[in-house]
């Protein structure tokens, strides 16, 4: 897959701090890309640079290999973190205005809006003022406005805040649909479970630098700590003897007659060797490598870099 969007060596300086310090991402075409990082890491600044809202001091952003210009913004659908609507304006009128600003013709916009309003079953909102809607309802409208002009690139900044679980699911489904239809999606979030669920690729940004970048499965396996979860029937003592000191064993509470331990590979013996040893000692019920969640990876990666910058 070719990279649809790349940002390289992006530097953005504000008066008293460096918001982006040679950060970069590359987003493969048709993927869902998670842009992660702690608060104040520079995610929103990077997103704004991609959206041509601010200009970088150094570095460049390429869209399908070409340098991005102001004219490209109509191929982008952007749902910012700080998002709102005109409170006194009617929903339909407002949606029409905002998508026309993206370059849609009035007729197309009306047709598309009708389709989405029916799909979300909110036809009755058309003539309501925005201030009459709940926050969740407003978020739905904003989501529709963002995707209406069928942009090739969608950027969502914390898309799920303000949604209840039902609507969160609805939006997730829509995001997956959009991907199916060929859109490339970048989204930034703090909710790691949704990252695991949706993203193909991620970048983790901390203190303005990209500290992790790549395919999510690769990253997860890179971070796996060589820990394994084992359930079995048999004598724990015998198992311990068999594994010897090569593997550190932490006994977990057992479930009925099935024993449960976590194994930490300390000397780097192969998995096959480990299984052989176990197999010779006890009857295996299940054996699974413990792959870390994004949550854990996030915390570990950020703490590591913070520690490094402090010791420097």
């Amino acid at each position: 897959m070719a990279d649809f969007l790349t940002a390289t060596q992006v530097v953005k300086r504000f008066s008293n701090h460096l918001a982006l310090d040679h950060a970069g991402i590359s987003v493969p075409e048709g993927s869902i890309f998670g842009l992660l990082g702690p608060n104040g890491a520079g995610k929103t600044t990077l997103i704004r640079i991609i959206n041509q809202i601010t200009a970088p001091d150094e570095g460049e952003v390429l869209l399908q290999g070409r340098k991005m210009t102001q004219a490209d913004v109509r191929h982008i659908g952007y749902l910012p973190e700080e998002r709102g609507l005109y409170k006194k304006m009617k929903v339909g009128e407002q949606a029409l205005y905002l998508v026309q600003l993206k370059g849609m013709s009035k007729n197309d916009a009306l047709k598309q809006l009708k389709y989405w309003f029916e799909k979300f079953e909110i036809q009755g909102w058309w003539n309501k003022k925005v201030e009459e809607l709940s926050k969740g309802m407003q978020q739905k409208i904003q989501f529709i406005i963002t995707v209406l002009h069928r942009p090739k690139l969608l950027i969502f900044d914390e898309p799920f805040t303000g949604f209840d679980p039902i609507n969160t699911n609805l939006v997730k489904q829509e995001i997956l649909n959009l991907k199916k239809e060929g859109a490339t999606i970048v989204f930034s979030t703090h909710v790691m479970s949704s990252v695991e669920e949706l993203c193909d690729h991620i970048a983790l940004i901390n203190n303005g630098q990209t500290i992790l970048h790549g395919n999510i499965d690769e990253i997860r396996s890179r971070f796996k700590p060589d820990h394994y979860e084992l359930t079995y029937r048999g004598d724990t003592e015998q198992l311990a003897n068999s594994l010897n000191s090569a593997v550190n064993m932490i006994v977990q509470p057992n479930r009925g007659n099935i024993e449960h331990v976590i194994l930490k590979n300390q000397t780097g013996i192969s998995i096959r060797e480990m299984i052989n040893r176990i197999n010779s000692a006890v009857e295996i019920v299940s054996f699974e490598e413990m792959i870390p969640g994004m949550n854990e990876i996030f915390i570990r990666a950020v703490e590591e870099t913070n520690h490094r910058t402090k010791s420097n």
Binding site: N51, Q70, R74, P80, E82, R83, Y86, L101
Partner: peptide
């Protein structure tokens, strides 16, 4: 001020120049 406090401004300037 209204556009700023409504938080709509970022939506708009992703389509047009400030």
């Amino acid at each position: 001020i209204e556009e700023k406090s409504n938080r709509i401004v970022e939506v708009i300037i992703s389509s047009v120049k400030p």
